[in-house]
């Protein structure tokens, strides 16, 4: 399984033709205390780079973009009851949604973990 990152601080785990998407530890730290996550519906068609979810922190609402295009196959139901999972375990239990990837070639432009850590270090 390979994990990629975007410059918008999303991560994407690719397992076959299904991808799991969430936001990075850096992103949750910037957003602060998360009180609600507005997730896409199962079956929603999402285009690369378009808003797929909205994270509500105490201070503001922030869009989360999909790293690749695809069809939503599952949203993380655990976030409905415990949105703070995004703060406590952003790159694990705090995942947002799973997608059936429409076009694997879109993965080519994403960063690997080392490249993302370097990107964050230079912000």
């Amino acid at each position: 399984m390979a994990r990629y990152f975007t410059t918008e601080h999303e991560w994407i785990d690719v397992d076959g033709d299904v991808a799991t998407v969430g936001i990075t530890d850096y992103a949750q730290e910037q957003l602060g205390d998360i009180v609600f996550v507005d997730l896409p519906e199962d079956g929603a068609e999402i285009a690369k780079g378009k808003d797929a979810a909205v994270v509500e922190s105490v201070k503001a609402a922030s869009d989360v973009y999909s790293p690749v295009s695809g069809t939503v196959v599952e949203a993380n139901a655990a976030l409905q009851d415990d949105p703070a999972l995004v703060n406590s375990d952003p790159e694990g239990e705090g995942w947002f949604f799973k997608l059936a990837i429409a076009d694997e070639s879109e993965l080519a432009g994403l960063m690997d973990e080392a490249a993302y850590r370097e990107f964050v270090a230079n912000l």
Binding site: V35, D38, E56, A61, P83
Partner: peptide, 9 residues
């Protein structure tokens, strides 16, 4: 006062 957890801005 809103029901649920989603804030209105």
């Amino acid at each position: 006062v809103l029901d649920g957890r989603l804030p209105a801005r």
